[in-house]
Simulated scan of single mutants.
Amino acid sequence: MARSLERARESVGNRAMSFDIEIVCAPHESDQRLVAYTTEPDPPTAHVLRILASWNAAHRR
């Protein structure tokens, strides 16, 4: 199983967000990948994620 770790910084409006990205590839299925985005529970990123989640929740009602 191959793994790749990366770090990304993105902005939503004027708020910065940072994520760790882990990509895992199965040894016999090279065209299939599992991508996991994680973040530290720091206030700026956590705050923006709560805002984005509320937009999605409002859309589903």
Score class of each variant (00 low, 15 high):
Asp42Pro: 04
Cys25Tyr: 03
Val35Cys: 08
Glu29Trp: 08
Ile23Tyr: 07
Met17Asn: 08
Ala53Phe: 04
Ile23Gly: 03
Arg9Asn: 11
Val12Gln: 04
Val24Gly: 07
Thr39Cys: 11
Asn14Leu: 13
Asp31His: 08
Leu5Trp: 13
Met17Pro: 08
Val24Tyr: 09
Val12Gly: 04
Pro43Gln: 07
Thr38Ile: 03
Arg50Asn: 06
Thr45Phe: 06
Ser54Arg: 04
Asp31Gln: 05
Val48Arg: 00
Ser18Val: 13
Val24His: 12
Arg9Met: 09
Ala26Ile: 02
Leu34Met: 13
Glu40Asp: 13
Ser11Gly: 04
Pro44Leu: 07
Met17Ser: 00
His59Leu: 09
Ala2Tyr: 01
Gln32Gly: 02
Asp42Ala: 10
Leu49Ala: 07
Asp20His: 11
Thr38Glu: 01
Asn14Lys: 03
Thr39Ala: 02
Ala46Gly: 05
Ser30Tyr: 06
His47Tyr: 01
Arg7Ile: 13
Ala57Trp: 01
Thr38His: 02
Leu49Gln: 10
Val35Thr: 10
Thr38Tyr: 07
Asn14Phe: 07
Ala46Pro: 10
Val24Asp: 09
Ile51Val: 09
Asp42Thr: 11
Pro43Thr: 03
Pro44Phe: 02
Ser54Asp: 01
Ala36Asp: 10
Glu22Asn: 07
Ala53Pro: 01
Arg60Ser: 07
Leu34Gln: 14
Glu6Pro: 03
Ala46Gln: 05
Gln32Met: 14
Leu52Gln: 02
Val48Asn: 01
Ala8Ile: 10
Glu22Asp: 09
Ala58Lys: 05
Asp42Tyr: 07
Ala46Asp: 11
Ile23Ala: 10
Arg9Gly: 10
Leu34Arg: 15
Pro27Trp: 03
Ile21His: 00
Glu40Gln: 13
Asp31Val: 08
Thr45His: 03
Ser54His: 05
Glu40His: 12
Ala16Lys: 15
Val35Arg: 09
Ala57Arg: 10
Ala8Ser: 12
Phe19Tyr: 14
Pro41Ala: 09
Gly13Pro: 06
Glu40Ile: 08
Ala16Asn: 14
Pro43Phe: 14
Arg9His: 11
His59Gln: 02
Leu52Cys: 01
Ala36Gly: 02
Arg15Asn: 03
Met1Ser: 05
Pro43Ser: 08
Cys25Asp: 01
Ala57Pro: 05
Thr39Gly: 01
Ser11Pro: 06
Ser4Cys: 08
Ser18Gln: 14
Thr38Pro: 05
Pro44Asp: 00
Asn14Ser: 15
Val48Leu: 03
Glu40Arg: 13
Arg50Phe: 06
His47Val: 05
His47Asn: 09
Glu22Trp: 01
Ala16Asp: 15
Ala8Phe: 08
Thr38Ala: 12
Val24Gln: 12
Ser4Glu: 13
Arg9Glu: 13
Leu5Pro: 02
Pro41Gln: 01
Ala58Pro: 07
Gln32Glu: 06
Ser4Val: 02
Met1Thr: 00
Pro27Met: 00
Tyr37Asp: 06
Arg9Ile: 09
Tyr37Phe: 12
Arg3Asp: 08
Arg15Met: 00
Arg33Glu: 00
Pro41Glu: 05
Ile23Met: 11
Thr38Val: 10
Ala2Pro: 09
Cys25Lys: 00
Asp42Glu: 13
Asn14Trp: 02
His47Cys: 02
Glu22Met: 10
Pro43Glu: 14
Ser11Thr: 14
Val48Met: 08
Leu5Asn: 14
Pro27Phe: 00
Tyr37Gly: 05
Asp42Ser: 06
Asp20Met: 14
Arg15Glu: 01
Asn14Val: 13
Pro27Cys: 03
Ile21Trp: 00
Ala57Ile: 11
Cys25Asn: 05
His59Asp: 01
